[in-house]
């Protein structure tokens, strides 16, 4: 049923477009979720110094590659928004698909990394460091998957030149996922 947009969606008393305002509030709640998890991890990590030996078994190279991949995909996301601003739906969709490519690369690298670690016996129940490692990276991975699917949906609209402002929204969400990884990377990989 063709959804008739109520007038409410077109009002902007605060001057910030409604979609972007909702996205900022969503990111606000995400900050508290990831914040709660990372703060719990940080407290445990500071308390149990020997976790450094456990952390030694994390693969920093894979972490660095993933950081590079996410930073690059963030660049593509902002270029997609840049293209959308100039009403160029096709270019925006192209960049969105590059970003999704980055997301998939990230997941592939993470998959390889995890299988290697699990094969070595560092499973989620190995010890509390690894429990936090898989929970935090896993929750982040879910957000990467959610971001990639959202971008795929938005890119189809872009091809038809519709709802171009959504490119910016999904771009903001993607940058947030990148920022979470920017903090996850040193916490999980570098703090050895």
């Amino acid at each position: 049923m063709a959804m008739v947009q109520p007038i409410a969606t077109r009002r902007s008393a605060t001057g910030i477009p409604t979609g972007k305002l909702a996205m900022w509030w969503l990111l606000g709640s995400e900050i508290t979720i990831f914040g709660g998890l990372l703060v719990s991890y940080i407290m445990m990590r500071i308390m149990y110094a020997p976790w450094a030996e456990a952390a030694a078994h994390t693969n920093t190279l894979a972490g660095s590659i993933n950081t590079f991949v996410l930073l690059t995909s963030s660049l593509f996301a902002v270029l997609a928004h840049h293209a959308a601003e100039q009403k160029n739906g096709k270019l925006a969709a192209f960049y969105l698909w590059l970003t999704i490519g980055g997301a998939l690369t990230f997941l592939v690298v993470k998959g390889l990394e995890w299988t290697n670690e699990i094969r070595h016996g560092f499973t989620i129940t190995a010890n509390s460091f690894w429990s936090f490692y898989y929970t935090a990276a896993g929750l982040h991975g879910l957000h990467v998957i959610a971001g990639a699917t959202a971008m795929a949906i938005v890119s189809f609209d872009c091809l038809r030149g519709k709802n171009l402002q959504r490119v910016e929204l999904v771009g903001i969400y993607w940058h947030f996922v990148d920022i979470v990884w920017i903090f996850l990377f040193p916490l999980l990989y570098i703090a050895k």
Binding site: I16, G28, I31, G35, I179
Partner: peptide, 26 residues
């Protein structure tokens, strides 16, 4: 990333304060 990629540098100040408040809660 927040300032340049998310264009927070040209966003309304309210958004900065809201995100900061959530961070302060954590």
């Amino acid at each position: 990333v927040a300032a340049f990629f998310m264009h927070l540098n040209i966003e309304k100040k309210f958004v900065w304060y809201m995100l900061l408040a959530m961070l302060l809660a954590v």
